[in-house]
Structure formats: structure tokens, C-alpha cells
Amino acid sequence: MKIVLLYVLCTVSFLLALSMNTTGAFVFFLIISLGMLLWARIETKIQTDRRNAEIRRRAEELVEEVSYTEYILSSDFLNALIMDEVTTTLYIANREDVDSRFERKKYPFTKILEAAIVEDGRILSLFPKDGLLGGERERGPEIYVVNSNDEANKESEDETVSKLSLKMVVNDLSNPTVEYVFMENEESLTKDSDEYKEVFKLCNDWHQKISVIIKRYEYTRVPIRQWH
């Protein structure tokens, strides 16, 4: 209500400024109008920040209902990637809106087979390199190793990206490929923008964590052969 009143006063002051016959009166009411507009925008930002803080607090409470050692929460508070090293479990949590509860899918560390950073459908980094996701090369995208080619990085400075995700292959025949989206925008970001670099760093950090998990458990998945 306060914000609406401020915008109304801003409009009234502006109309009064236009109706004034003297320069002094015009400037006076114009300053009042601009002041009301600035005040209204500040109040709007304060209320938005408070609302987002409350949504974040509730989202974090829901995410922390399960045991965890670390997690990340998407900027829209609708998705979360949760890791628990105590129970050796990875969770991907999703929900439709900020008023609903998260639906969590559980993946034991031993069932995570591959991890890849995917940028607009193109695989940038794949572990292990000879994994199943490597077959996507035949469908078009090439496989790159992050930071392995300085020239490729220079050529990509002017490129834009609309989606960045972490894709994993898990030992689940019903749904063998799962994905956590770090960024998906209608308006693409340039690769050299600070916002994209920050998101990419976060995605790369989690890719490295999951690669370590895959490496740690790869030998436990090798069938035991009889001694001859």
C-alpha cells in the first residue's frame, strides 16, 4: 500500500509540475515527483529483498530436512543439488513453485558413473573421457577439456550461452541420465561476463567433486574374478 501511495503522489506531483506557470514552481513539484519516484523504487527493492530472503530461508529449511555436508540452491529457489559424504549420497531436488515442497531423487555415490559439463548442448568436460556420454560426439557436439586450450578460450570470448548444466550417468535403467541446471536464461550471457564466469566456476567445482567421487568408487564397480 505504501508503494502504491508513493507512485500516486509521484504522478500527482508531476502533473502539478506540468500545470505550473512559473519556472520555480515547475522545478519544485518536479523535484518532489522525482523524490517520490526514487523513494518508491527503494521501497520496492527493500520489499523484494525481504520476500526473497524469506523464500530462501524456507527453501533452505526444506533442503536441510535431509542429512547433508554441502548443497547449492538455484537462484529461483526451485532446484537444489545436495551432497552427503556421511551417507555417501547425492540428491537432486526440484519443485514446481516456491510454495511447494521439494521432490528429491537419491543417488548413492557408487551408482554415479559419469559427469559432464554441458553448455547449450555441447559437452565441455567429461569424466571419464571414454564414458557413455562421449557417444554424443557422433550426434554433433565435440568433447572438450576445460581450460585445456587457450586458443579455444580466446575464440569463445564473444560467444553467448543460454544454458549451463551438469549431466550425470547413473546406474539406473529407468532413468540413466540425470541433469542439474546451473543456468538457463531466455537472454544469453556472454562467456566473458562476470555473471557467467561465476556460474561456470560453481558448475566446474561441482563437476570436479563428482569426478572425485566417480574415481574413488570406480574400482568397487569392477567385477571380482576368481583366482586361477
Rank of each mutant, 00 (worst) to 15 (best):
Y71L: 02
T44H: 11
N94Y: 10
S174R: 12
E159V: 03
R137M: 07
F182E: 00
F127M: 02
S13W: 10
Y219G: 07
S100V: 02
R122I: 12
I55N: 06
V161R: 04
S67N: 10
L126R: 12
V170N: 05
G140P: 02
C203G: 05
E136M: 15
E103C: 09
N21F: 12
L6C: 08
E43W: 14
P223Q: 11
V222W: 10
V212K: 14
R221V: 02
L81R: 02
E138N: 14
A53Y: 06
R95T: 00
R101C: 07
S74D: 06
K105M: 06
K105W: 03
F102H: 03
L133C: 05
F200K: 11
E136Q: 14
M83V: 04
Y180V: 01
E142H: 10
N175C: 07
E218C: 13
F200P: 00
T220L: 15
Y107G: 00
R57S: 10
N185D: 10
S193K: 07
M36N: 11
P128L: 04
T88I: 10
E155Y: 02
I55V: 11
A53M: 06
Q226L: 15
V181D: 01
V12Y: 10
E43N: 15
N52S: 06
E85Y: 11
L5P: 08
P128V: 00
I72D: 05
K215H: 13
R57D: 05
I123W: 03
P108E: 04
I117K: 13
N147K: 12
T23C: 08
D205K: 13
Y7R: 15
L126F: 01
L90P: 00
Y219F: 15
D205T: 09
N21G: 15
F29W: 15
D49L: 15
V212E: 11
M1F: 12
G24T: 11
S148L: 03
L132E: 13
T190C: 04
S13T: 04
Y91F: 09
Q208I: 02
S148F: 00
K197S: 03
N147A: 07
E43G: 07
F29V: 04
T11S: 13
V146Q: 08
A53Q: 10
R122P: 05
I46N: 13
E54V: 02
H207M: 09
T190F: 13
Y144F: 10
Q208T: 06
L18V: 06
K45H: 11
P141D: 01
E96M: 07
D158V: 06
A93Q: 07
V170R: 03
D84G: 06
L78Y: 04
